[in-house]
Design a protein around this nucleic acid. Structure first.
Lengths: 227, 227
DNA sequence: TGTCAACTGTCAGTGACTGACATTAGCTTG
DNA sequence: CAAGCTAATGTCAGTCACTGACAGTTGACA
């Protein structure tokens, strides 16, 4: 509860501002080193030295080496949740989740830029996807998020999360598909925002058709739902 | 490629048998300690000491403390893959995956028992689900498995994995739902095989309905697909 | 039986992380 | 503005997972 998440230099004391600067510096230096030399080849000492603080201080700002890698990601997730909560109740669960994702991407850029360059965050995301230890952490974090989303969906639909399996099932299917899109984006050449948007829509469009028993009709074209 | 996975004491030399016994002992002791004292409160030294080998030897059998926790899980997964490969080609992808899972559970017990008591494995699974670090590793391993399954599905349906998003999308949705069932089972009271089978079927049954736009019709009863 | 290769143990070292305690430096109050 | 409080930081020692190097042991096999 005492944590500040953005770089909003509120008119607080010098102490606060110093802390904020230290945190920002640690974060930026860490991501820069991670993305250039690789996560595993970067030691915490290296990060701390670059910012000229002790290793102990690093661990007072971030509970682990891992945590610093997900600092921005966490903002993105809150953004999505906020967007989902704002979706009109008439929308079905899938429409709401889909619109929340696509909608949150319209404004997320600025929010990120307040902390680190967007381009650095893109590189970070790709690094997470390609570093086993970080991918594992990412997936675990995602399950926490899923549970939150399931709760929101259940709320929207006025259902009891423990009695009706549909909220969790729907969210699991949705996020599963999102992850496939995210992973392919991370592996692909095109690191643009356009690219991930297209990939996401493409994959979400295929969720319905993929559940059909018969697949033998080719379905290469994005929008063409066969069946 | 040089690894043995089961406890089949083939008529090989004394050396091989000794190795097998050491591995089995390490595995069993490790799981026993993990499940009783907790994963994090168990050190590798403790395990090694209990088996009376050096810590170094432990790491020659298992690449990490984590790996030993997943040794049995790995068997279970291979079992599922084998079952999936054996499903008749007429079955749709979902039917095939579903039947493969449920089918593999018919015979998995004996396979497990050859290495460790089934009951110990059940406890281990629950421990994995409730230990953050292990859950993370589990999820990462699952993505590897998903990719394998997607390949098999694409093969079955004679599709190009890179051109058609449906295999990956279907697998993501399927395994996402499986994980929800698995997690709930791990959290619930009933640790029986019956229990997980029921939970799985229940959740898979709800995948189709959950994709529908309209949910307002209550769907509490397991088999009752509304809409 | 002797030789080779596979196992194993020992040792030293790295890197993430933690608790305890001393030190520094904003903030507050008289 | 000086004294005192307290949050932030530094230092140090220690634990634990994991690794490379090297030496000792012990099955396997001619």
């Amino acid at each position: 509860m005492t944590e500040r998440q953005a770089t909003i230099e509120s008119t607080t004391g010098l102490r606060e501002r110093k802390k904020q600067r230290t945190r920002d510096a640690l974060l930026r230096v860490a991501l820069e080193l991670f993305t250039t030399q690789g996560y595993e080849h970067t030691t915490v000492d290296e990060i701390a030295d670059a910012v000229e603080v002790s290793q102990r201080t690093f661990f007072r700002y971030f509970a682990s080496k891992e945590e610093v890698a997900f600092a921005v990601q966490e903002m993105v997730e809150s953004h999505f949740v906020a967007e989902l909560l704002a979706r009109p109740p008439e929308e079905g669960p899938f429409a709401a989740m889909r619109n929340a994702v696509l909608g949150s991407w319209n404004t997320i850029g600025e929010a990120i830029e307040a902390v680190v360059p967007v381009e650095l965050h893109m590189r970070t995301y790709r690094m997470i996807e390609s570093t086993p230890a970080l991918l594992a952490a990412h997936l675990r974090r995602s399950t926490d998020l899923e549970e939150r989303i399931a709760g929101i969906v259940a709320e929207r639909e006025e259902l009891d999360l423990d009695a009706d399996p549909r909220p969790r099932v729907a969210v699991a299917a949705f996020t599963g598909v999102m992850r496939v899109a995210g992973r392919l984006w991370g592996q692909g050449e095109d690191a643009s925002m356009e690219s991930i948007r297209t990939l996401t829509e493409l994959h979400l469009d295929h969720l319905g058709p993929a559940l059909a028993a018969e697949w033998r009709t080719p379905a290469r074209t994005p929008g063409a739902h066969t069946a």
